Simulated assay, not measured.
Amino acid sequence: MEKNNEIYHDQEIGRKLKELRTEKKLSMRTVGEKLGINYTYISKIENGYIPSVKLLKDICEIYDIELKDLFGESKPVPKELREVGVEWITFAKEMQEQELTPDKIKEYIDIIKRFKDV
């Protein structure tokens, strides 16, 4: 991050934001409209200008990521996975390690249901 006339620039954050916007297939104009700001400001941000934390949070909300995902080497966790939770993700990994496919698990559930109905 470089300081230039009291304005902070961070090319990495700008690059990540541009990547996220293009992955979501959003134009700068669309993002600007959602935020209530001029789209040229989105361009400035993507070129490294650091906006307020509030605006960064609002941008992250549009891109379905958390603010912390912009910093460091972490990759954003999709919203759907965040909602599932660690316990279910761990369970799915354990089932995969046991070579249990989703279809096989559904089959076992059906068997258990039949036994319960007897």
Rank of each mutant, 00 (worst) to 15 (best):
V118H: 03
D110R: 14
E87Q: 14
K44P: 00
L20E: 06
I13H: 03
I59C: 06
D64C: 04
K54F: 11
K25M: 10
K34H: 14
R114F: 05
K25R: 15
E46S: 02
I37N: 12
G85A: 13
S43C: 11
E33G: 10
E23N: 14
G48D: 01
K24C: 11
N4C: 00
L26V: 06
M1F: 05
E33I: 14
R29Q: 15
E99R: 13
F71L: 10
T40P: 08
K24W: 08
V31A: 08
R114E: 10
G48I: 00
E73Y: 06
V53E: 13
L56V: 06
K68H: 08
L20C: 03
E61A: 12
T22P: 03
Y39T: 04
Y108Q: 07
L35F: 12
T90I: 13
S27R: 04
V84R: 15
E33L: 15
E87R: 11
N5S: 02
T22H: 11
R21Q: 07
K104P: 00
K104T: 12
K18R: 14
L81H: 10
F91Y: 13
R29T: 15
W88A: 13
H9C: 00
K57Q: 13
K57E: 15
G36L: 13
I111V: 11
L67C: 02
I37R: 12
L35K: 11
Y108M: 14
P102I: 02
W88N: 14
L35P: 06
I89S: 11
I37G: 09
L81D: 13
R21H: 05
R29N: 15
N4T: 01
V118N: 07
Y8G: 00
K16C: 03
T40I: 14
G32I: 08
F91D: 11
P78D: 11
K16I: 03
D110Y: 09
L26S: 06
I112A: 12
E66R: 13
K18I: 00
P76D: 04
E80A: 14
I109G: 01
I45F: 00
L70P: 05
S27N: 09
I50L: 12
R15I: 01
E83R: 14
R114N: 06
I111E: 09
N38K: 15
P102F: 07
I13A: 01
V118I: 09
K93F: 11
E80D: 11
I65E: 01
P78A: 07
K79Y: 10
L17G: 03
I13G: 01
K68I: 12
K16F: 02
K57V: 09
K68R: 10
D64F: 04
I109M: 07
I65Y: 04
I89D: 01
Y8N: 04
K113S: 04
K79T: 09
K24N: 13
T22W: 07
H9A: 00
N4Y: 02
F91N: 10
I111M: 10
I42L: 09
Y63L: 07
E23Y: 12
V86T: 15
K79R: 14
R82K: 15
I7N: 00
I89G: 03
I37F: 07
E97F: 04
R82P: 08
E19H: 07
L55Y: 05
